[in-house]
């Protein structure tokens, strides 16, 4: 499990802003904090850190979201589960990428 801290910059338009907030609240991976002005702090929990990357990309395309900044990502749980790839793996050019 990976936990990320993010800041979303919301649109100025109240209608689009409301729609964005509704969509963000409906996403069970997200926990929203208290916005300051247009800036909304939130945390994202994803099964893998790599899924967090995709989530951020999705947030960028959400109507009413103007920008997404990353503040932190913690994937210590994930590494304790044995992923990502072991740093001891032996690579060679015939090896398919992971």
């Amino acid at each position: 499990m990976a936990i990320s801290g993010l800041v979303i910059t919301l649109d100025d338009d109240p209608e689009r802003r409301r729609a964005a907030l509704a969509a963000l609240r409906a996403d069970e991976r997200l926990t929203l904090g208290e916005p300051t002005g247009n800036h909304l702090p939130l945390i994202a929990e994803t099964r893998r850190a790599r899924e967090g990357v995709e989530l951020i990309e999705d947030l960028f395309t959400q109507p009413g979201v103007r920008f997404v900044d990353v503040v932190s990502v913690d994937m210590s749980d994930e590494l304790e589960d044995g992923d990502p790839a072991s740093a001891d793996s032996v690579g060679d050019p015939s090896h398919e990428e992971g």
Binding site: S4, V7, V53, D69, V70, V71
Partner: peptide, 25 residues
């Protein structure tokens, strides 16, 4: 000022691709 982009998010993961080169070939 404390912020990163989506690439910064995964910068730590760039170390851990499965096919890291580990020996001279």
């Amino acid at each position: 000022k404390g912020l990163l982009c989506v690439k910064g998010y995964h910068v730590g993961l760039a170390l851990y691709g499965k096919d890291r080169l580990t020996r001279p070939l």
